[in-house]
């Protein structure tokens, strides 16, 4: 009993550090997947609970961040797949309500909107590779896809963003 409590306490402090280090990243990834702030918070919390349950499976060679992101992505995908999610009213959050007409550079959310508007398969590689800076191999591992497929999707996603965000990152 004493041993198991010590292990639990160690896991608890590891988890608290993970939440401090990666909490923002995880909740933002969840938001980009689920498009709903409240659900994103639920999914992020669930991610860390699952991480705590599976902490003993984290191998020394694993990248902690990629491991957590994989849990988060699977949690979001499970929520998106569940019938419950489809029945719950979640189509639009208050954050998606109309923005002021004037565009303030500090509040302009064009990039976010265009990323959110991408098809799921392109959005997820953009989130993981470009936003979270995972390598293409790590991205492939998280998504359970061949690396070649990830590279193809990255190329296509980049082309789509090139059109939609012209003037932001693609001066032509």
């Amino acid at each position: 009993m004493k041993n198991s409590r010590m292990i639990a306490d160690t896991h608890g402090s590891t988890l608290e550090r993970m939440m401090t280090d990666y909490g923002d990243s995880i909740v933002r990834i969840c938001y980009l997947f689920l498009k709903d702030r409240q659900l994103a918070q639920d999914a992020a919390q669930e991610t860390f609970i699952k991480a705590w349950n599976a902490l003993h499976t984290l191998r020394s060679g694993d990248t902690e961040k990629a491991w957590l992101i994989k849990i988060a992505v699977n949690t979001c995908k499970n929520m998106l797949r569940s019938r419950y999610f489809k029945m719950v009213d979640r189509s639009i959050s208050t954050d998606d309500l109309p923005e002021p007409a004037s565009v303030d550079p500090d509040t302009d959310d064009t990039v976010l909107k265009e990323v959110m508007a991408l098809d799921d398969k392109y959005r997820e590689v953009v989130i993981l590779y470009y936003y979270q800076e995972l390598s293409s191999d790590e991205t492939a591992k998280v998504l359970g896809l061949p690396t070649a497929t990830v590279r193809t999707r990255m190329k296509r996603a980049r082309e789509l963003l090139r059109t939609r965000l012209k003037g932001w990152y693609f001066d032509e």
Binding site: D24, V27, R28, D95, V111, Y169
Partner: peptide, 15 residues
Amino acid sequence: KFRTDLNRQLAEIEW
């Protein structure tokens, strides 16, 4: 720049 912009636009979504 993409990462910075996206982080700025997601600033309200935080742990």
